[in-house]
C-alpha cells in the first residue's frame, strides 16, 4: 500500500498526544525541534516544569521579538524566557538532575526506534557528517520515562520503527512510548503494542508501513 504524505495526525496533533500523557507536577525535558511543540498543548490545570540541560529549570516561552536575551537560551540555542520560580544552575548540576533520575519525562526525536526500545537519534553514521551528540545519551540513560515523537516513516518511505537499529545507538532499551503521525505505540517487554491509531489508519495499514512487528492490545 502506498504511504501518502501527511497521512494521519499532523505534527501539532502528535505533540498534543504527548502533552496529554504528561502528568501534573512533572519535570520535563523537551528535545530540540518537534518535541518543543509539546509545551504548547499541556492541558489546563496541569503544572509542568521544563528543564533545559544548559542550566535552567522553569523554562518559559520563546522570547518575543525584541525581548531576546543573548544569555538566556535553551538547549537548541533559541532565545527563551524563564518563569517566576525558575532556577539557574551549572552544567554538572543540570546533568545530575538528568543522570540522577530526577527528571520525570523527556521527549526526543528519532532516526530509528527498535522493537526493544533502542533509540538512534544522533548520527546516521555517514562519515561526511560531523558527529554531534549533545545531551541525548545522558537523557536516555537517566530520565525515568523517554517518549519519542517522530514521523512514522522517512521521506523516502522507510520505516523508522525497526527490528534492529542500523544507525549508531543513543541508548539501548530506553524508549517507553512512540508517538508518530500514524499511531501511538507502547514499547513493552513483550513487543510493540499499538495504543492508539490515527483517524483513518487501520492496524493492517500500520503494520504494512512498519518494519518491526506490531501487536494489538486485547479488547474485551
Amino acid at each position: 500500500m502506498e504511504l501518502k504524505e501527511n497521512t494521519g495526525w499532523t505534527i501539532n496533533e502528535m505533540a498534543q498526544k504527548v502533552a496529554m500523557d504528561i502528568h501534573d507536577g512533572a519535570y520535563v525535558n523537551l528535545g530540540i525541534g518537534i518535541p518543543e511543540l509539546v509545551a504548547g498543548y499541556i492541558p489546563e490545570g496541569r503544572e509542568v516544569i521544563y528543564h533545559t540541560e544548559n542550566g535552567l529549570l522553569g523554562m518559559g516561552k520563546v522570547a518575543e521579538k525584541g525581548e531576546e536575551d543573548f544569555e538566556l537560551v535553551n538547549a537548541g540555542k533559541k532565545y527563551i524566557t524563564a518563569i517566576p520560580g525558575a532556577a539557574y544552575f551549572h552544567h554538572a548540576d543540570s546533568f545530575a538532575m538528568i543522570r540522577g533520575g530526577h527528571i520525570d519525562i523527556c521527549v526526543l526525536g528519532a532516526y530509528q526506534v527498535s522493537a526493544d526500545g533502542d533509540l538512534a537519534n544522533w548520527s546516521t553514521g555517514d562519515p561526511n557528517d560531523v558527529p554531534a551528540v549533545g545531551g541525548a545519551m545522558d537523557l536516555v540513560a537517566g530520565v525515568k520515562t523517554v517518549f519519542v515523537i517522530t514521523q512514522h516513516n522517512t521521506k523516502n518511505g522507510e520505516s523508522k520503527i525497526v527490528n534492529k537499529c542500523t544507525y549508531p545507538l543513543t541508548g539501548k532499551n530506553v524508549v517507553s512510548r512512540i508517538y508518530t503521525n500514524l499511531a501511538v505505540i507502547d514499547v513493552t517487554d513483550k513487543g510493540l503494542y499499538v495504543k492508539e491509531l490515527a483517524p483513518g489508519i487501520t492496524f493492517d495499514y500500520l503494520q504494512q508501513n512498519t518494519d518491526a512487528r506490531l501487536y494489538q492490545y486485547q479488547t474485551n
Binding site: H90, H91, R99, G134, G135, M137
Partner: peptide, 14 residues
Amino acid sequence: LELVPQGTLAERIR
C-alpha cells in the same frame, strides 16, 4: 575531535 556526551563532558570537568 573527541566527541563526549554533554553530561559526561560536564562530569569529567567537575
